[in-house]
Structures are given as C-alpha cells and as structure tokens.
Design a protein around this nucleic acid. Structure first.
Ligand SMILES: [Zn+2]
Ligand SMILES: [Zn+2]
Ligand SMILES: [Zn+2]
Ligand SMILES: [Zn+2]
Lengths: 161, 161
DNA sequence: GTATGGCCTGATACACTGTATCATACTACA
DNA sequence: TGTAGTATGATACAGTGTATCAGGCCATAC
C-alpha cells in the first residue's frame, strides 16, 4: 500500500483493514476447503487488493519483481486462476483486469459497478438482478449458467464531487 | 456463406436472408445519418454476419485476404470501430469477438445469450432488465451509463437436442 | 480546374494479454 | 524413504489491440 493508492479509495476509508480482512477470510476459506493458499497466491491476492480498482495481470507481475526473482506470466495467471476458482477474485471482462471479492464465502456471480471517473469498482450482489436475468432469458428458451454484468457509470463519490 | 456454416444456425433458417437484411438496413441507416458505409466496412459487416457466432477480429482479417491485398490489423479494427459506433455490430467482451446487431435502428445496449454448446449468440433487448439494473445500481448511488450483460448457458436448440 | 482540407486506407512497428510445454521443486501420504 | 500429486520456474509463442506516419480519395471552395 502506497500513499498514492490511498486517496483513490471510495470513502477515504482504512483500506489496510479491507486488505487484512480479505486475506484473513481467504485463509479461513482455504483451510475449510483444503485448498492451499501458498505464499505466492497470498501475495497475488494482496496485490489484487492493493486498491478497489481492477488490476491487470502484468501489473501484478511487475510488482512481484522483488529484485531477485522475476516471475513469468504463467506464474501470475495460475495464481489468478486459483483465486478465481475459489471466488476470492473476479475477472472484469470488459477491462481484462482482476478485482478482489469481498464476500467470497458463497460462490457467486456478482454485478460490477465501474466508475469511469475514479476507476473504482464495487461489486453488487443482487439476487433480484440475477433472477430477472434468469427469468427473462428463460422466456426466450435460454437456460443461464453464468452471468457477466458490468455497468459503467458514475459512483456516488464522483457524482457528489 | 459456406454450407459448413449453415448447420450451426439456430433454427436451420435461411441465413442469407439475415445477411441481406442486415446489409440493407445498414445501407439505409448510414445514408440517413450521412455516414459512409464504404466497400471495406460493408465487407467487414458481411463477414461479421457470416454466422450467429461472434467473430474474432483476426478471423475477419484472414478472410479479407483475397490474394492480392493482405490488410493489416488496424484496417479491421477501424472498420469495426465504425460499425460499433453506429450500432451495427456489438463487441462481446467476454469473448473478444464481434457480433452483428439485428436491430441497429435505435442505439442500444443489448443483453447477450451465449450458448456454450453451439456457440450461437442471440441478443436480448429487454427493457425490464435494463431498468432493473439501472434501479438497483441507483439504490447504491451509482448512475449507470452503459451496460455489459453477457449470459452463458444453453440455447433452446441445444437444450432440446 | 486546381487547391485545400477532411476522411479513409495502407503499412510498419509495437504493446498488451494470455497460453503451451517442459523442467524442477515442493508436499502429502503410503 | 519412496512415490504420486501439486505448485512453481522458465522458455517460447499465440492472440488481441494500438500508435504512428504515409498515401489516396473525395468534396467543397476559390
Ligand atoms: Zn478498501
Ligand atoms: Zn468514482
Ligand atoms: Zn441468420
Ligand atoms: Zn446452442
């Protein structure tokens, strides 16, 4: 966490707490599931959580370079695959970027609110939306298995400011 | 249109009619708007419409190679940009691919039903869905400007078959 | 008719994103 | 310990998209 990253956060909140909580939840979850949150995966998760803006795989890759080791792309993508599989991270399709999930307990498909002003993305986990999509698609004979919903616009902060 | 392409179409319909209608609508629309549907752009639109499956930019690029001229990537991307700008083509974010729009008259953001079995994609233009998304996001203080909705599942054909 | 300016296309080079493959290291368990 | 399964390192490459400059086409103005 750099100071530079701090000021872009939605409400000037204590983002270190976000990160801590995310990492702890991840630990717990992985233990429960017998999944291995290795140091690398943990580090990647931490880097994804470095802000509330989606992070590119190659950004992560760059930050993994701690002088001695310079990981290669597959290293990051494999870690991301793991994290996504366990619901700890979401991929934002329209941005080719990755975002930490803040309620990974129950597997889910969220809806993402992408602010075009500040770049912050918040996840909306709305059952009404899910149902509506499923129902309307079903009326066309289509059985939905997974949903990608990404909305671009203005967040509350940026509307106010 | 090859025979090979025919059998993947949703209902064994006359796809040539789809293409003809799409091209004619595009012509009309561009005339109305004073936009120039050049031979290249028309050809790219035709190629996008070669099936009801999204087409990659480089697939189009390959098919533009008519022996003599071998266009470069920017040629295709510029044509696609034009077509997207005029609502004639949609980009499917989760597939990095492009799909012809079958009702480009009113500019819109559709919802896309992607069959994971046959690969066909149909566009659902549901105002209820749009409203629900806008409303639910607004309840979180978020003002929606554009929507990306891509649902993966099974189409009516593939469920039956 | 020529000139000017805007738009469209050609062409080269490059940036960004993601994967295939094989080798090595580590872990868990028998 | 031995062994199978998993995780990471490393190299190379595939797929997707863009920056930039040059040339060509067309319309309007002079
Ligand atoms: Zn935070
Ligand atoms: Zn914002
Ligand atoms: Zn058709
Ligand atoms: Zn299908």
């Amino acid at each position: 966490m750099t100071d530079a990253a701090l000021h872009i956060h939605p409400t000037g909140h204590d983002h270190a707490a976000c990160v801590d909580e995310a990492l702890e939840t991840a630990e717990t979850l992985c233990v429960e599931r017998g999944a291995r949150l290795t140091p690398l995966r943990r580090r990647v998760l931490e880097l994804v959580w470095s802000s509330h803006r989606p992070v590119g795989a190659y950004d992560i890759l760059g930050k993994l370079d701690d002088g001695a080791r310079k990981p290669a792309p597959p290293t990051v993508y494999r870690a991301l695959d793991f994290l996504i599989e366990h619901g700890l991270v979401h991929r934002i399709e329209s941005m080719n970027a990755y975002l930490g999930c803040n309620h990974p307990e129950q597997s889910h498909t969220g809806q993402f609110l992408i602010c075009r002003e500040c770049g912050n993305v918040t996840e909306m986990d709305d059952e009404d939306v899910r149902q509506t999509l499923r129902r309307r698609a079903a009326e066309k004979g289509f059985e939905v298995r997974s949903q990608t919903v990404e909305l671009v616009g203005l967040c509350a902060n940026c509307k106010a400011g």
